[in-house]
């Protein structure tokens, strides 16, 4: 009897050994979850939900989009950090959001605990003023700012986003001093410009289109203006001012844990392929084109995106170590 059991156990193990690689190749066999770092509505949520049907088509299983707002993106990030090692839980967040979260919040994760599946969208920065503003160019604005240090006010969504970093870059390059006020959200920061609470806003090429009526673009914070039709054909700021400025952009990307990539390389490869396929789906691109948002799609492969993210991490780490707004609480 004992021999029979041993024989059955050995046979089962052999069958399992044969089947397991096949199962691994068939992954995913059940639903996956894409966790979004913000509430329903808004940029992050749209970036997840717009490609969702096409991702499901590519993966062959349901992909649930779940919002886990809170903690200034930390709640969702921590959730995937803790539960994502089998690759079924994926994170949609932004750069530099995840860097600021790791560097300035009391969290357990580091950026290197994650690895990107893909960069999905890119949002270059720009400077927008009201139609009736006295400045016709960035030179006018800087000249005025040099005469009135600290008096010209700018709005940004948070101190922890790339638009804030963009203004700091301009200040450093030109010796100006702006009064930068965070509004707790991009829409609020842009509406503050419309209502005249601030003199200018540093915002995204695409996300600031909702205030294009009543405002105009003074300059693009990017090396070239690839979006002239939606940015009043504004000249890049560095060219207007003749100074050296890094390209300013935020990006939304999808990430898994580094452990997922290391322990399940075949699953990681499946996800990379699915996102690549969905982001190039013709129906998906047609839908974005209809909404005038096609330009923000910027698929970046994992390795390139990871390398760029690491470079930006170093810049932000230096900023966090030196700026008063990040060191004040220490």
């Amino acid at each position: 009897m004992r021999n029979k059991i041993k024989l059955m156990a050995t046979g089962s193990a052999a069958i399992l050994a044969l089947v397991t690689p096949a199962l691994a190749n068939d992954w995913p066999t059940g639903p996956l979850t894409l966790y979004v770092v913000s509430s329903p509505g808004g940029g992050f949520d749209a970036a997840a939900r717009q490609p969702q049907p096409y991702l499901e088509e590519a993966l062959g299983v349901p992909l649930r989009v779940e919002n886990r707002p809170g903690g200034n993106t930390a709640v969702a990030t921590n959730l995937v950090y803790e539960t994502g090692d089998d690759c079924t839980n994926i994170l949609l967040t932004g750069i530099p959001h995840i860097h600021f979260s790791a560097l300035t919040q009391q969290v357990n994760y580091e950026y290197e605990d994650f690895y990107p599946i893909a960069g999905l969208t890119s949002e270059p920065g720009l400077v927008r003023v009201r139609d009736e503003a006295p400045w016709q160019s960035m030179n006018d604005l800087i000249e005025d700012a040099l005469e009135r240090p600290g008096e010209i006010t700018a709005s940004v969504a948070f101190y922890t986003n790339n638009y804030y970093m963009g203004i700091l870059d301009i200040m450093q390059a030109t010796g100006t001093d702006f009064n930068i006020v965070p509004f707790g959200g991009g829409a609020d920061a842009r509406n503050a410009l419309l209502r005249g609470e601030v003199d200018f806003t540093h915002a995204g090429v695409f996300n600031s289109r909702n205030v294009e009526e009543g405002t105009r673009v003074l300059g693009i914070h990017y090396s070239e203006n690839r979006w002239p039709e939606i940015t009043d054909d504004a000249t890049p700021i560095k060219d207007q001012l003749g100074v050296d400025l890094d390209d300013n952009e935020s990006s939304y990307g999808v990430f898994v844990t580094a452990a997922c990539r290391e322990n399940h390389p075949e699953r990681f490869a499946t996800l990379v392929e699915a996102f690549h396929s969905a982001k190039h789906n013709e129906d998906y691109l047609a839908m974005l084109e209809a909404g005038g948002e096609l330009g923000k799609v910027a698929y970046v492969d994992p390795e390139t995106y990871h390398a760029a993210n690491l470079r930006q991490y170093d810049i932000i780490a230096e900023l966090v170590a030196t700026r008063e707004e990040f060191t004040a609480a220490d």
Binding site: E213, G214, E293
Partner: peptide, 18 residues
């Protein structure tokens, strides 16, 4: 209302004053 705006996004409709 935020979810309603997300639905508009999903249909390729840009929200805002326009």
């Amino acid at each position: 209302a935020a979810v309603m705006l997300a639905a508009l996004y999903m249909h390729g409709i840009s929200v805002g004053p326009q």
